[in-house]
Amino acid sequence: MTSSSIPSNAVHICVDMQRMFMPPNPWAVGWFPETLPKVIELVQRKPASTIFTRFIPARRPGEGQGQWRDYYCHWADMTLERAGREIVDLAPELQAFVPPARLFDKFVYSPWFDGSLQRALVAEAVDTVIVSGGEADMCVLATLLGAIDFGYRTILVEDAICSTSDEAYDNIVKLFSDRYSQQVEVTSVEAVLEFWR
């Protein structure tokens, strides 16, 4: 639980709160509608300190490297060619925050893979990241592990992340509360708003 001040230059990384993960899409995250208001509360605190990541699927079935080719054959209806480019857009309620919030696109689960996010945070002397969004056991997990590897003070906002599975959500919160307790602070939207001035 966060009980100390969050520096003014902290960055809120909001993971993949996009149309493709909203019901009734095939990749819909069940908790998305309930989580969205909490995410909005965080974004409203400091829109200019928010980075939205967006997962960008393959253009057409069979594209991608290695296992991703099979993945997009299986999920052919979620490729850009079939689903339409608009599926990568943020949830409508979040689009108005960009700008000043920024977008970072990625083609895999981790936002750290191509180095652009890390370069931006280093250039801004950021040492603290606050993580929200979805999906808890996929892209949020990859975001957290990268932040740990780069040595950031990492804050997971447990009531502002979502998953398709209650069990997966509970396991992720427990994992970072227990196993990673020296590297990740698991806290609430209320606490972030109190300590991030």
Rank of each mutant, 00 (worst) to 15 (best):
S5G: 05
V88R: 03
M78Y: 09
G66M: 03
V88M: 08
V11H: 02
G115C: 08
L80S: 07
I161F: 06
W68L: 14
F176A: 03
Y169R: 13
C139L: 02
T53F: 01
R197E: 12
L145M: 14
D16Q: 09
L80D: 06
K46M: 10
L144F: 05
L156Y: 08
D16E: 12
L36M: 10
D70G: 15
I6L: 05
V122T: 15
L141M: 08
A101N: 11
D77T: 09
G134M: 15
V126K: 12
C14Q: 10
S49L: 05
V122H: 11
V186R: 01
A96S: 15
M22C: 13
E81V: 07
V131I: 15
K106N: 06
Y72R: 01
G146V: 10
I155T: 03
V122P: 00
S116Y: 02
S132G: 08
L42A: 04
S110R: 06
V186W: 01
D178V: 13
P99T: 12
T53L: 02
A168I: 09
S132P: 07
V88Q: 07
V192K: 04
Y152V: 07
P47S: 09
D105N: 14
T128L: 11
P26F: 07
A96L: 11
F104I: 15
P92T: 08
E135N: 12
